[in-house]
Design a binder for these strands. Structure first.
Lengths: 204, 204, 204, 204
DNA sequence: CGATAAACGAGACGGTACGTCTGGTCTTGTG
DNA sequence: CACAAGACCAGACGTACCGTCTCGTTTATCG
């Protein structure tokens, strides 16, 4: 039995990676990747179901985004650090690629799944951990909805990435984290919201 | 331009609209639209720069999403109503289409612009107005960052739409609005956050 | 309606014709023809069902074989002249091509039909005419089976062409015609063959 | 040493033989043969240079055509018997295969050689023998061109096989042999043809 | 009788070409 | 005389096989 040739795999991912710096995912073609990698098209189709799968793998190998979460500072600051570095990386070429992967996901359930598993879930887990610490150390309310927290913190980043609505910068990162921690109702409000808020924000 | 072409235009948009109920934007082809509309390909290219532009127009004509914002209830409730109806519409077939338009936007600046102008800005303006009212009526702090508010409220909706991370439902709509209004730090906190929060959340 | 572009057609046939001088029909590819002709593959597939059809057309336009049949000499001599010139042309590059067309015919009924109609039937008709004259002028027996005559005269030529069994030359052309006219039984034979022959050779 | 595995060889030929009843030589692929035979492609390439070689071997083993030539009847009748049985076999599925082998021969000199050696030469030798007997026993003229005889008798059969010009049947077999023995000039002719014929028909 | 080297099955590899599809442009005949 | 109809060039799609090339795994002498 033959077994997979690691050289081919590497060549494909490398070629893809290189080409992605000049072209969009849509512009890439399996044919061009194969030619650039010096590999038969069949070899690509043998190991990947489609173009986006190749792109995801290439991205994971060469463009991996590292977003450290310090654990020796208050949770809020740790989050700011984390989101800031995420934002900074998404502001570069890697961001365009991630946006395109999300685009491809709209047409292929498998890409969507892969994207969620390889990008979203990793970060989500880190934030969940962080929230747990925050609760433990009293920095967050006991009934904090951690999952919602994940979405509150990341969603604006992804929307800016996708819609280019406004700049992806550190200011923005801090504002988002602050908002997630604070809310914007008048600090003096003594009305029901105070209580309701706690209830509402908790998700089953 | 001859009167004749209004018919063609309408036929194209109608054909596109019909076909979109069975197919993704990617699956549509100018060729197929032309055939179904009984129109020459040239005619389409004369009036629209590309497929996505046709789709946007078709969507605006036939699938328009209405998300009322009541003005006789507290801002927070008005927002909940608004986001809830948005979420409900995005949970249906219209949502899939919007997601695909965002996807197409990643590959064409013009689509992105069109999308922002026709979808995002409309809602954004409504929310800005609402925030203004909230400030005026004392329901929101004077220094509320209205633009940030827009993002805080909509982003999680779009991210769930695109990543299908969790269900798009009314629970979620309310939770998101509540979060935007509240924040999740301990209610009893007397620390700096109180003041810092105000400063931080304000954007220059 | 658009209507066929004569330039494209000509370019395809010319390219095919040129390439056929260096390559076998099997070695030709639609892709290569399209490239050489500066034409889209689609255009070829639009007008011809397959490679062999293109080759037949190209051959008819550029390599056509002319085999005159004089009508002012005895039928036998006219036939010798005709077969000789056929043989001489088949001995050249045109012969290889005809052989390959017969080969292709084994895999495609349409090619076979086209081949018979465009090559075989033309010659056959000429020989039938000739036989008619021969009978009229008393050079051939009244009951001559003209169709059989066609086969007797051409078959050995085609078999030598295909099997390369022996040289295709003028000697051979004359021998074949003579044989068709003569037979090889002893001239002195007084046996039944004389009569039977007449009956047998006539086909219903 | 491992030694050649006769099982593999047999399996390949058997698989080929079976597949040939449903498919043309062109449609067969080494890959399919290997799979059907439960054999590695390498094994096939080790023992045969190409597809046609496998087909020839398979044909020789399973579809061999037997065409008896009786030696106790006049040569003419013996020939009729022989050609009749040849014609009858070629009218069946074996004929299609032989035609395809001739087709393949146009693209590969080795196939042509193999075909001539294994099919043509055998029959040719038998006919040569027969002609020798005919001359010895006075049934044929001394100067009979035996090689030409071979071609005269077989060519029409092969041409009908390849071009499907008309039916391959016993009528035809007899007509061809008669023609070879007789010629078609008027029986009463006392002119030169009688002598010329003899001269002409003799080949150096 | 156990080592050893061939031939073996499996199947991955770099390639070529297939026939189809769509994109975006150009051409033509018709209503 | 505008426009539907559709032909045009271009080139990617995903598939089928090509002939070569490892891979372990039989096997079947021969040392």
């Amino acid at each position: 039995m033959a077994g997979r040739n690691e050289n081919s795999k590497r060549a494909v991912l490398e070629a893809t990676s290189e080409m992605l710096s000049d072209a969009t995912v849509q512009q890439l073609s399996i044919e061009a990747i194969a030619k650039r990698a010096g590999v038969g098209k069949t070899t690509i189709y043998r190991w990947w179901p489609n173009k986006s799968a190749v792109v995801i793998d290439a991205f994971m190998e060469h463009h991996l985004i590292h977003t450290p979460i310090p654990d020796d500072v208050p949770v809020r600051e740790a989050l700011v650090t984390h989101v800031t570095s995420l934002v900074e990386q998404y502001a570069g070429p890697g961001g365009r690629l991630v946006a395109q992967l999300i685009a491809e996901s709209q047409y292929d359930e498998q890409i969507l799944t892969a994207f969620r598993e390889r990008f979203w879930n990793g970060r989500r887990a880190a934030v969940l951990e962080l929230v747990k610490r925050g609760v433990r150390e009293g920095e967050l309310r006991d009934d904090t909805d951690a999952e919602l927290m994940v979405e509150l913190v990341y969603s604006p980043v992804y929307v800016r990435l996708l819609l280019g609505y406004r700049e992806l910068d550190r200011e923005f990162a801090r504002a988002v984290v602050d908002a997630a921690f604070a809310g914007i109702a008048p600090a003096t409000a003594k009305t029901s919201p105070g209580k309701k808020r706690a209830r509402r924000i908790t998700r089953s």
